[in-house]
Design a protein around this nucleic acid. Structure first.
Length: 494
RNA sequence: GCGCCCAUAGUUCAGUGGAUAGAACACUCGCCUUCUAAGCGAGUAGUCGCAGGUUCGAUUCCUGCUGGGCGCACCA
């Protein structure tokens, strides 16, 4: 047990037991008794019993009998193999108040250390879906905690603004933009999102209107099956061609094609304006907003480096890196020569280390990305960077609403804006219904109280649910009881 | 098929190598001079998935099994 973070009270209890038994401090630990009436702190004597081959109950009794009150400890009693201590309340309270006033209640364990935290990192050109609040909220909470511990925190928003997805958007705009009379000057994120979803459907053979009939016919067999099979094959081929069109657009973008670049710039600006509004509402901030595209100039160097270190092989036309104990290699360059996000994350990790000399670099990303991050960290290690061990992937599970996933891939996403609006509306209704005096308070920091309460509740619940199969509902979040109510209350005070 | 994660109260989730495993919601009862709601108080609630192992002691650590989630090369 790390003894350097102990409060004087904990240390005092440990010292009493350790001194009497003649064992080092760090072999013992302090617990809280199951019942407050038993005492404030408990030290178990089992480790001493093990070391000295004595009866733990006898040891505890001997220590309690020999106890002499100290500045901080008022009494000691033996309870089975435990020594239970009661604190000297006035002395303890004085200590707590002094620490609180001096703002030293939280140990400054991070002084002089830098920590990079990658969170939120949404994809440009898609609306912020509800699930984005997980990474955003957890990352921001971690950042605040590390700041309180006196770390220098670099909150990073690694925008997904590069890659084939953006080729898809350009392709979709080329395909439908004109006929739909999409005005680039008036473009909004909903339209971009729609283009994206439409393109994904456009390149998915199973989304063809006749796909259901074909599948049925194939299952039924006979001559009709042959016809259906041919039609499906044709559709698959068309989708493959369309997919290549998107890949080509991304390649053009990577090579600086002016038309591709201009569209991408516009899509990016529209998206960022939208994101900023939401972050503002949530009270989320970043030290660095740097998209994947910013690493594009580094990619050639990364490839050269990986090749120089003889890590790259050609496999099925793509450039790949094999990692130990992995059945599938990491693709660092696609067969058409375009980059992948593994390469870009490799470059961004190097950038972060070069720029901030971080002691830790944390990525707050859902656990579906676990393989990806283990690959990126693995490549860094294989490339000889010792600091790869200081990189960590902080995972969390998917958010479910009503038992369903909230992914945007299929276009059935739940929008973050909608959830926040609902939270606000419900908070407002709740206040009015309870005839609460709070409803009379018009603004807190210029924002309607209901909005603060609603957002606070949603953020708190979303950050609190870290493991397992989460299920979220706004109604639940707004059951302002217990912990949630306390935290929301604190948020309002600040 | 392979890999990673998870399994605790009716539900959603905490938690720990040690003493009686917790909270919220739900449910039941009571209080707030009438009813309802909100509020407050109390109560009921558990084979800690199953089976072995390590240990003085396992819900916690290890192995196997079962059940669920996610991921497995040119999306990010």
């Amino acid at each position: 047990m790390a003894t350097h973070h102990l409060t004087p009270l904990h240390r005092a209890a440990l010292e009493v037991v350790a001194a009497h038994a003649g064992v080092p401090l760090d072999t013992l630990k302090v617990d809280v008794p199951p019942n407050p009436s038993m005492g404030d702190l408990a030290v178990a004597c089992h480790p001493i019993a093990k070391a000295t081959k004595q009866n733990p109950m006898a040891i505890a009794k001997a220590i309690a009998d020999a106890f002499v009150p100290t500045d901080l400890l008022a009494s000691a009693t033996a309870a089975g193999p435990f020594v239970n201590f009661r604190a000297n309340r006035p002395a303890l309270l004085r200590w707590v108040i002094e620490q609180a006033l001096g703002n030293t209640l939280v140990p400054a364990v991070g002084t002089g250390k830098t920590i990079c935290i990658d969170y939120s990192s949404p994809n440009i050109s898609k609306e912020l879906a509800f699930h984005h609040i997980r990474s955003t909220g957890i990352g921001h909470a971690l950042a605040q905690i590390f700041r309180a511990l006196d770390y220098q925190v670099v909150g990073i928003n690694h925008l997904g603004d590069w890659g084939t997805t953006h080729g898809m958007l350009i392709a979709a705009y080329q395909q439908w933009g004109k006929e739909d009379k999409i005005d680039l000057a008036q473009l909004d994120i909903a339209q971009l999102n729609e283009l994206y979803v439409r393109w994904r459907d456009h390149t998915n053979p199973l989304k063809h209107e006749a796909a259901g009939k074909w599948m049925a016919a194939i299952v039924a067999g006979g001559d009709a099956a042959e016809v259906a099979r041919a039609a499906l094959a044709k559709e698959v081929e068309r989708c493959a061609l369309a997919t290549n069109v998107a890949r080509d657009w991304f390649k053009k973008l990577e090579h600086g094609d002016p038309e591709a670049r201009a569209l991408w710039d516009r899509f990016r600006a529209v998206s960022w304006a939208e994101f900023e509004g939401v972050y503002d509402k949530l009270g989320i901030t970043f030290e660095l907003v740097r998209g994947e595209s910013a690493y594009e100039p580094d990619l050639a160097d990364v490839m050269a480096e990986l090749r120089a270190k003889q890590l790259v092989e050609t496999s099925e036309g793509a450039q790949v890196v094999w990692l130990p104990d992995q059945k599938v290699p990491v693709i660092v360059e696609k067969s058409d020569g375009a980059s992948t996000y593994a390469t870009r994350d490799f470059a961004s990790a190097k950038y972060r280390h070069a720029t901030y000399q971080f002691d830790r670099s944390i990525y707050v990303v859902d656990r579906g990305q676990a393989l990806h991050f283990s690959q990126v960290f693995g490549m860094l290690e294989k490339a000889g960077y010792a600091w790869a061990k200081q990189c960590e992937h902080v995972t969390f599970g998917l958010v479910r609403m009503g038992g369903k996933k909230t992914s945007t891939r299929g276009g059935a996403g739940v929008m973050l804006k909608a959830v926040l609006a609902e939270a606000k509306a419900r908070a407002l209704a709740k206040m009015a219904e309870a005839d609460s005096p709070a409803a009379q308070l018009p603004l807190v920091n210029g924002v309607p109280l209901a909005e603060q309460v609603g957002i606070g509740a949603v953020l708190t619940v979303v950050v609190a649910m870290v493991t397992g199969t989460e299920s979220f509902s706004v109604v639940k979040a707004l059951q302002l009881t217990g912990l949630v109510a306390c935290i929301v209350g604190l948020k309002l005070v600040h």
